[in-house]
């Protein structure tokens, strides 16, 4: 099954009881990990004789420049807008199709070959084709992001709907619930952690979609910014959008992970 949440923290395998680190200790190690990598990177950049190797400090400086010139904001806005609209369209359609596939066997049989095949296809392969069809404007980007987002959401939603306990469906039956109300009360809430997992996995794919589409269209967006700066060997400046994308992806991913953990918490022991 794709993208079912697992808890890595539970994977303890020691023979004897290990003292668990305290909260403060954990934070400390987490922060040192961050600092260590940045320091090593900085030292390496300073020692390197190549002008193409830039350190974190230069990236920070370049960020300041790009903010000051208004470039970063303009391009980030363009990417964010396409990403958001694409996310919305892709996840809503993924949700609807996933619910139908999960609940109705005949829909599943009909659509499954397409969904499985396309999910396994490296979707970047169709980007050039789509751009030819849809042009160099935001429409291409939105469609590409939607397609990238659609599959993880649809597949996880379908898996979640199939996992809805039969007992609870029978409960709904015994209370004479109508189909639509069973969806509201039982099917959707039961599948919700799976749906959120799908959304979480689709964030990364959506960002890939946006950036690759911007590489191809080369008109605007963070992808274009990376492309144009690196082609002029402005290494620090070309890394700025990369960091921005990384932070955006990380924040969205962590937020959804939190939502998911909260939901699983409430279902513990049932």
């Amino acid at each position: 099954m794709v993208g079912v949440a697992t808890d890595e923290r539970s994977a303890t395998g020691g023979r004897r009881a290990v003292r668990l680190p305290s909260r403060v200790e954990e934070r400390l190690w987490w922060a040192s990990g961050l600092v260590l990598v940045v320091v090593v990177w900085q030292v390496y950049a300073m020692l390197s004789t190549s002008s193409l190797i830039v350190g974190p400090w230069e990236v920070v400086e370049a960020t300041g420049d790009l903010i000051a010139s208004g470039e970063l904001w303009e391009y980030a806005q363009s990417s964010a807008l396409s990403f958001a609209i694409g996310m919305l369209i892709g996840s809503v359609s993924g949700l609807v199709i996933g619910l139908l596939v999960g609940r109705f066997r005949l829909v599943e049989i009909t659509l499954d070959p397409y969904i499985s095949a396309l999910y396994a296809t490296p979707l970047v392969a169709i980007i050039p084709v789509l751009i030819v069809l849809l042009g160099f404007g935001p429409l291409s980007k939105i469609v590409i992001v939607s397609i990238f987002v659609f599959f993880p959401v649809a597949i996880n939603t379908a898996a979640g709907v199939k996992e809805v306990p039969r007992d609870l469906l029978e409960l709904a039956d015994s209370f004479c619930s109508r189909e639509m109300l069973t969806w509201r009360d039982v099917v959707v809430p039961s599948a919700l952690p799976f749906i959120v997992t799908g959304l979480r996995l689709s964030v990364g794919r959506g960002l890939i979609g946006v950036v690759v589409a911007e590489f191809e269209t080369a008109v605007t967006g963070l992808g274009y910014l990376i492309l144009s700066k690196s082609r002029r060997f402005l290494m620090a400046e070309s890394l700025v959008p990369v960091v921005v994308l990384m932070i955006a992806g990380f924040v969205l991913y962590s937020l959804l992970k939190r939502v998911e953990d909260g939901m699983l918490e409430r279902r513990r022991g049932l």
């Binding site: 007992d167 609870l168 029978e170 409960l171 015994s174 209370f175 004479c176 009360d185 039982v186 809430p189 039961s190 919700l192 939901m263 409430r266 279902r267 049932l270």
Partner: peptide, 15 residues
């Protein structure tokens, strides 16, 4: 509608 069930394993909605 005039008949209801009580189940062995409760079948509460966990959410």
């Amino acid at each position: 509608p005039n008949t209801t069930l009580v189940f062995q394993h409760f079948r509460l909605l966990p959410w």
